[in-house]
Simulated assay, not measured.
Amino acid sequence: MLLEVWREVLGVPVGPDDNFFDLGGNSLLAMRVGAALRRRGGHTVAMRDLYLRPTIRQLAADRAG
């Protein structure tokens, strides 16, 4: 779901190891990611977590561990 939301918010193809900020992400878009995840009933991503773990793979590993 996170991959799909990033693609939607950023408007570019996204892979699991792509850095959110290298793809054009910023704090406003990070808030949009959180809002889109909430609308879909998923777990939201805190801005702090996104800055510390800016790839989908890192975020997923953090949730799994």
Rank of each mutant, 00 (worst) to 15 (best):
M1Y: 12
M1L: 13
M1P: 15
L2N: 08
L2S: 02
L3T: 15
L3A: 15
L3M: 12
E4Y: 02
E4V: 07
V5C: 03
W6F: 13
R7H: 04
R7E: 15
E8A: 06
E8Y: 03
E8F: 00
E8L: 06
L10N: 08
L10M: 09
G11A: 11
G11V: 08
V12I: 04
V12D: 07
V12L: 00
P13N: 10
P13C: 07
P13I: 05
P16S: 11
P16G: 09
P16V: 15
D17L: 14
D17H: 15
D18V: 06
N19C: 13
F20Y: 09
F21E: 01
F21H: 05
F21I: 02
D22E: 13
L23D: 14
L23W: 12
L23K: 14
G24K: 08
G25S: 08
G25V: 06
G25H: 13
G25Y: 11
N26I: 06
S27C: 07
S27I: 10
S27W: 14
L28K: 03
L28H: 02
L29N: 05
L29S: 09
A30R: 10
A30P: 06
R32P: 02
R32H: 13
R32F: 04
V33Q: 02
V33I: 03
G34W: 01
G34S: 12
A35Y: 10
A35C: 01
A35F: 11
A35N: 10
A35P: 04
L37M: 13
R38Y: 04
R38S: 08
R39T: 14
R40Q: 12
R40E: 12
R40L: 12
R40S: 08
G41W: 03
G41F: 05
G42V: 04
G42M: 02
G42L: 02
H43E: 13
T44A: 10
T44R: 10
T44M: 08
V45G: 07
A46R: 14
A46L: 09
A46V: 07
M47Y: 14
D49R: 04
D49G: 01
D49L: 02
D49S: 06
L50S: 13
L50A: 12
Y51I: 10
Y51A: 10
L52S: 15
R53T: 02
P54N: 09
T55W: 05
T55V: 03
T55N: 11
I56L: 15
R57A: 15
R57S: 12
R57E: 03
Q58E: 15
Q58L: 11
L59D: 00
L59Q: 14
A60G: 05
A60L: 13
A61K: 00
A61D: 00
A61R: 02
D62I: 02
R63Q: 06
R63M: 09
R63P: 00
A64N: 01
A64Y: 05
A64D: 02
G65P: 09
G65K: 10
G65C: 08
